[in-house]
Amino acid sequence: MLASMTRLWAFDQLSSRPSGIGCPPRETEGVDDYLPAATAEGENTTEAIAEQTMGPMLIWAIRMVEDFSDDILTAWAEMERLRAAAAANKSTPASLASLKAFMEPLLAGDLPIPAVTWRGKPALARAYIAAITGASHNQVTATSKRLGWRQAAVRRPGPCPLKTSVTGMLGGKPWREALDYHECASLTRQLGTACFIVIAYLTGMRPEEVAGLRSGCCPDPEPDSKGQTGRHLITGAVYKTARDEKGNHRSEGELRDVPWVAIAPVVNAIRVLERMVPTGDLLFAHDAHDTRSGTGALTISTMGDRIEDFVAWAN
């Protein structure tokens, strides 16, 4: 508020019809007497997150990055491949025969039918079935309607497993028997959130600074003349203290003079994000982390919501 009053006075000096606003006395006397008294806690009085909360959350975030990321990103790539294949499939007698050969044993054996949750209810997973059988979307739709497959999926909804390998371990056992076609998007979202938590907590960056990082911001260090390799450093932008030559705040930020030092979990998180976005793009680019339309990086409000979702998912 004090800065706004100073700006009002400054613009009044430039006006063709000045209102005679006086120069705020703090501009010459200093601002301390016009601000609340300092507290024992310092400027930041926000209560720290309890160790009983932060510890498990950080452990789960690191686990996602280091143990589960390969499985999730491999499954995401396979899901994208299957989705494209299903859209390109043509209706042929051979594809119809393949479709029936897949579905008829499930129906005859009273087994679970591949399903997806649609508007809170189970529905036949038509895209998945089309992808793995080679049938077209139209063939799956028409045949399921004629033979009652949709009703069977509602009564006996089943998973849509991918054939990708599962390498991540949890408690000495694989963390998933198989990843599901329809959970790839949510798992990839949780993985991106985990990367955000790791980077923000283990570097001390402000959320806006993390969101502003780009692919390539943390290159592998080159050995020196003695063959010794230094630490990983992160080059990024700062926003809170970014000012132009006239003292105005620069919302786009400015390059940080001193890079952040990155320990191994942070480097691993950045490497995971670099697999999710194009070279040189924002690590948290909206179009890479959200199916809805948007530009720039994910907002801090969005990341706050995603952290809450991540906590609920991990619990």
Rank of each mutant, 00 (worst) to 15 (best):
G42F: 09
D224T: 11
A48G: 08
M169C: 07
P105C: 15
A97L: 11
L191Q: 12
P93A: 08
G294E: 07
C23A: 09
E47N: 02
G227Y: 00
S95F: 03
G280T: 09
R214T: 14
M54C: 10
M5Y: 03
L124A: 00
V258R: 04
M64Y: 14
L8S: 00
E208G: 15
T235I: 08
K145Y: 07
T302Q: 01
I300H: 03
M276S: 07
P25F: 02
T46Q: 06
E80K: 15
S91W: 09
A314G: 03
G148D: 03
A242T: 13
I234H: 01
L2P: 02
T141V: 14
A38R: 15
L282K: 01
A125Y: 10
T291W: 08
G294L: 14
F310Q: 02
L99G: 00
E104Y: 14
D244Q: 02
F196M: 07
S16Y: 00
V277W: 11
P259T: 08
T45V: 15
G22M: 05
P161N: 03
G20Q: 04
P174K: 00
I300V: 14
Y201W: 12
I49E: 05
P221N: 08
Q139C: 00
L106P: 11
S301F: 12
I21Q: 04
G230I: 12
V238T: 15
D305C: 11
R292G: 01
E78T: 11
R119T: 10
R306N: 07
I270R: 02
L96V: 12
N315Q: 02
N138T: 12
S19A: 14
T203M: 04
Q52C: 11
S15Q: 15
V116L: 13
C195S: 05
I307Y: 08
R63M: 13
P207N: 10
K246G: 10
L233W: 11
L202R: 12
G172C: 04
D257I: 14
P25Y: 01
A115Y: 02
S293H: 14
L162V: 04
R156L: 08
L191E: 03
R243W: 08
V65S: 06
A38K: 15
M64A: 10
T28V: 13
G253K: 09
L14E: 00
T295G: 07
I197W: 07
M64R: 07
L82T: 15
G120A: 08
V238R: 12
E308D: 02
R271C: 08
S293P: 10
G42C: 05
G42T: 07
S144A: 15
A97Q: 05
E209D: 07
Y201D: 02
D32V: 10
G171R: 05
K100E: 13
I199D: 03
L187I: 09
A153N: 11
A85F: 13
L282P: 10
Q139R: 00
R26M: 04
Q52M: 06
R275T: 06
G212H: 09
G296F: 10
G236V: 13
T141R: 12
T302A: 08
V267D: 01
D32N: 10
M205A: 14
A40G: 08
A153S: 14
N248A: 08
S19V: 04
L99Y: 02
C184S: 05
G192R: 06
K145W: 10
E27V: 14
S144M: 02
G280I: 13
I72L: 11
H249E: 07
E51R: 05
L233Q: 09
